[in-house]
Amino acid sequence: MRNVAIRNWVIGTGTPVLLLAAWWFLSANSTDPFFPPLETILIRFQELWLFDHFQSDVLLSLGNLFLGFAIAAVVGVAVGFATALVPPVRWMIDPLIHFLRGIPPVALVPIFISLIGFGTQMRVTSIALAALFPTMIATVDGIRSVSNDLMDVARVYRLSRKERVFNVLLPAAMPQIFSGLQVSLQVAFIVMIASEMLGSSQGIGAMTLLAQQSFMTADMWAGILLLGVIGFLVNILFSLLKRKVLSWYIGSRRMARAA
């Protein structure tokens, strides 16, 4: 058991290290203007992002991302609850949900990009709007799939409306809400980059696109590298949060599989 875990860990970390090493050596003497040596990219990465533009661009991008995502998460869950529980809201929103369900969330991105203005507010709004729908739809689905037995228990023991919402429905729907949040996070990330590439002079996306347009290939690669690193770290953070909030769900699933 332990050996398998160690082996998996070695494979999991070894592969990316090997790939980076391969990139490093294969590109070492590259003169191709589009594929500069990794060493050059890393030097530019350090110069550009770690000091110079960290505050002006990296923090700005991350701030937009988290603000937009947070708004999407809160509003998405709230609207999802209203849709699932309040009939008039359901009649209004249900057709929209049925329409949106068939469209992959990423396909909505162009709409929001075209709506993006130049201000930070507009960019955060687009991120929030685009990221709203996956969470909202997942919340509605999550609440609808809460078993009737659980709701019967809540009624027999005369739980108040507030208790039913916050102590039964919300936790019961949480696994599905989290899969919605995961998609929302990806969409928020995409819209963040796209919004900077299209309508801004600041931010990681803007810097990366500018580098590409000015044939500063190493800078472009450095920007893409940074986006990759940020995406990776954000996902790790999200997984940690998920593991904490859904520990009961993960545990019960593992138990069900073992049985």
Partner: peptide, 21 residues
Amino acid sequence: GPPPEMALVFQDYNRSLMPWL
């Protein structure tokens, strides 16, 4: 409606306990 002096033990314990508690 559910009477205050009554409790009900459901057939399916599996789906009547809150798994997150």
